[in-house]
């Protein structure tokens, strides 16, 4: 009888492990939501006569939000891609780009889900779906939307062509 109770007590104590291992309370998910833009150019292959899309490096770049005093990129050198914050509670965000000496205004139009729920530890994030991108054409020749879903995963959303 005594050994039976001993086993019982051992099992009961060991079962406590199932309760004592609780999950960490910290948010482990990346909550950064930004629109990723890559600079591209079309390059002509002399022998085949076929255009291909290659990366474009901007020598000096300044980017700021319209009506916002702080610069997102301040004289960044040799830039091929950037990440910009969209207005979380809006459907449109405007930016002023300065490529070397030339200035352009870029406008991103999108729909927003303001409270995409992640978890109790992380809370919510605002995610967007880009519907249109327009700009002035001093440096920028054309724009392609590669991936309209802007959320907390990293992927190129827009390509700007010179």
């Amino acid at each position: 009888m005594k050994t039976k109770y001993l086993f019982f007590v051992i099992i009961v104590t060991l079962a406590q492990f199932l309760f004592s291992c609780t999950t960490d309370d910290e948010c482990r998910t990346d909550k950064t939501v930004e629109v990723d833009i890559a600079f591209k150019q079309k390059s002509l292959n002399a022998t085949t006569g076929v255009y291909s899309i290659v990366s474009l490096s901007i020598d000096s770049l300044w980017v700021q939000g319209l009506d916002n005093d702080s610069l997102i990129y301040n004289n960044k050198k040799s830039v091929t891609s950037i990440s910009l914050p969209l207005k979380k509670f809006s459907q449109q965000t405007d930016y002023i780009f300065r490529f070397n000496d030339v200035t352009d205004t870029l406008t991103v139009l999108y729909t927003t889900n303001e409270n995409y729920y992640l978890s109790l530890e992380c809370g919510c994030i605002a995610i967007h779906n880009i519907s249109e991108v327009v700009s002035t054409q001093h440096f920028i020749d054309s724009i392609s939307i590669i991936n309209p879903d802007v959320n907390n995963t990293t992927t190129t959303h827009i390509q700007i062509f010179n």
């Binding site: 939000g65 916002n68 702080s70 997102i72 914050p85 207005k87 979380k88 509670f89 303001e114 409270n115 109790l120 809370g123 919510c124 994030i125 605002a126």
Partner: peptide, 18 residues
């Protein structure tokens, strides 16, 4: 009930609580 979810937009200076 889930209360007090705060979203802040640091660059554009906006905050909302859900």
């Amino acid at each position: 009930s889930i209360n007090n979810i705060i979203l802040t937009d640091d660059y554009w200076n906006e905050t909302k609580t859900y």
